[in-house]
């Protein structure tokens, strides 16, 4: 679910057509792109249990007193050899998941998505991003979280570019400053891209937004 509405935080799966006519919930037309697996390394490191079980939003809200007599919320156990990693310890990502009420397909939930939801681009930042991109930052920029110190472990900009290309067959970013355009695809699309960012962000104009300012 690499797309997130910057207005209400709703996320959409890769290739979702739902967002093509704007966010169904708030009508917003700005989305943040968050490729799958972006923060995996760090998220796993932050998870003391090393659990591979996808965090579910219900974990921290459902009463599970019968199966889990000891609520361990206040004492995370940083032991990798923990034999039963399935207890309902609130992981940071799970908490974030729980805070979102609109998670529809939690099966695909991963840490990148959880992070994306908690890390919404501010309107100011989006505005700035649509006007200028410091080219020096293009090579190293990563979408979403800018607070990640573990830069050596992050997926490269090439991976992100591949992800973006998979989304927009109409414009292929070969490398910074080099583009290939599919004219027919651009022509056929009802919505169109009005701002490209090398770091995985983009702004598209939605058909629903047209005519809003018409007199």
């Amino acid at each position: 679910m690499p797309h997130q509405c910057t207005e209400c935080g709703r996320t959409f799966p890769d290739g979702s057509k739902e967002m093509l006519s704007g966010c169904p919930d708030c009508g917003g037309n700005k989305f943040q792109f968050k490729p799958n697996g972006v923060d995996d390394e760090n998220a796993v490191a932050a998870d003391p249990t090393g659990s591979t079980e996808p965090p579910t939003p219900t974990d921290s809200t459902e009463p599970r007193g019968s199966t889990d007599p000891k609520p361990t919320r206040s004492e995370p156990k940083p032991t990798p050899s923990e034999p039963k990693p399935t207890q309902s310890e609130p992981k940071p990502t799970a908490e974030r998941s729980a805070s979102s009420e609109r998670v529809s397909d939690i099966d695909n939930e991963d840490t990148a998505q959880a992070s994306a939801r908690s890390d919404v681009v501010s309107p100011d930042e989006l505005d700035r991003a649509s006007q200028e991109v410091p080219p020096a930052a293009d090579e190293s920029a990563e979408p979403g979280s800018g607070s990640d110190p573990d830069s050596g472990q992050r997926p490269g900009i090439d991976d992100l570019r591949d992800e973006l290309n998979a989304q927009f067959e109409s414009i292929r970013i070969v490398s910074p400053g080099k583009y290939e355009l599919n004219l027919m695809e651009l022509y056929d699309r009802q919505e169109y891209i009005i701002s490209l960012q090398e770091d995985g962000r983009y702004v598209i104009e939605m058909p629903d937004a047209w005519g809003v300012n018409d007199e």
């Binding site: 080219p135 020096a136 109409s170 400053g177 891209i193 009005i194 701002s195």
Partner: peptide, 20 residues
């Protein structure tokens, strides 16, 4: 180069706009 990369991106957006 910095300016050229920016122009290139804007030109690409411009083509998208023209097709639209």
């Amino acid at each position: 180069k910095e300016d050229a990369v920016r122009r290139s991106r804007e030109a690409t957006e411009g083509v998208a706009e023209a097709m639209h």
